[in-house]
């Protein structure tokens, strides 16, 4: 995802709940947690080169996973 940030307002109550939930985890901030949730909802596509893509597609086809 890009580095540019925008501000979004959400309820303080929700922010407090998230802060409590992430305490002691690898997620340092509420923003980070919400970004993680949204990234899972709108993930970045894995990049494959055309050559990699063809090799994988061919193997999957050979094994019968795709037609």
């Amino acid at each position: 995802m890009g580095d540019e940030k925008v501000a979004i307002e959400i309820s303080k109550e929700l922010v407090d709940k998230v802060a409590e939930k992430i305490e002691g985890t690898s997620i340092a901030t509420v923003e980070e947690y919400i970004e993680l949730l949204l990234e899972n909802e709108f993930p970045e596509e894995t990049e494959y080169t055309a050559e990699e893509e063809e090799l994988i597609r061919e193997r999957l086809r050979r094994l019968g996973y795709i037609e």
């Binding site: 894995t46 193997r59 094994l63 019968g64």
Partner: peptide
């Protein structure tokens, strides 16, 4: 071997499907 896929392959497969 016919049932063993790497994560890069399953990720590709899920996308294809």
């Amino acid at each position: 071997p016919q049932y063993r896929l790497k994560p890069e392959e399953t990720r590709f497969l899920f996308k294809e499907k």
